[in-house]
Amino acid sequence: MYPLLHAQSPEYGPELRASLARLAPAFHFTPELVAQLARQYAGEAHLDDPVAFPGNANSAFPCQLPSTFVLNADEDELHASGEEFGRQLRNAGVHVDMGAQPHMYHGCLDDTSLPAAHSAIATMANWLTDALRAATLP
């Protein structure tokens, strides 16, 4: 949930722009902040490293990944990175299940008072349970 998969923010679509307009300034991850976080996380020399940022990888890397579930917070700038990575995986032939948790912001899973946080955790757990069952059945 709310992955940072690119060292620079992908373009925001109109739906994401509309949902971000509802956010308080403290919840925004501007493109400049994302770039700063990327440099702090990986260092300037590793911004193109697909291990640090799989969304920056060349076309050969994503096709090596297993089936993937991407759940984005609806009101989070990092949603754009999650959506773009899902498209990259699909274009590489990887099975992707992708969704958006409505009216949720970055870090929402930390707030256990939010029913939507419980719903998101249950959604992720169910997907993982199903994927593991499918992988272990004869």
Rank of each mutant, 00 (worst) to 15 (best):
Leu20Asn: 00
Leu16Lys: 03
Ala117Ile: 10
Ser67Gly: 15
Ala120Cys: 12
Leu109Trp: 07
Leu23Asn: 11
Pro10Arg: 03
Leu128Ala: 15
Gly86Lys: 02
Asn126Met: 06
Glu77Val: 03
Tyr105Asn: 04
Asp130Ser: 15
Ser67Tyr: 03
Pro10Gly: 05
Ile121Thr: 06
Phe27Cys: 05
Ile121Phe: 06
Leu37Ile: 11
Pro138Arg: 09
Pro62His: 05
Gly82Ile: 03
Ala92Thr: 01
Pro10Lys: 04
Ala57Asp: 05
Ala52Ile: 02
Pro54Lys: 01
Leu109Met: 15
Gln64Gly: 13
Ser113Tyr: 11
Gln40Ile: 10
Ala92Met: 08
Gly13Gln: 03
Ala80Ile: 04
Ala24Leu: 11
Pro66Ser: 08
Leu71Val: 07
Asn126Arg: 13
His28Tyr: 06
Glu84Gly: 03
Phe27Asp: 06
Ala26Tyr: 07
Gln40Pro: 00
Ala92Cys: 11
Ala116Lys: 10
Ala134Pro: 02
Pro25Glu: 08
Asp49Leu: 07
Glu84His: 13
Gln8Glu: 15
Glu15Lys: 11
His106Thr: 03
Ala18Arg: 15
Glu84Asp: 14
Asp110Cys: 12
Thr129Gln: 12
Asp111Val: 15
Ser67Leu: 10
Gln88Cys: 01
Ala57Met: 04
Gln64Glu: 13
His95Phe: 11
Pro10Ser: 07
Asp76Tyr: 09
Ser113Ala: 13
Asp49Phe: 06
Glu44Val: 12
His95Ile: 10
Pro31Ser: 06
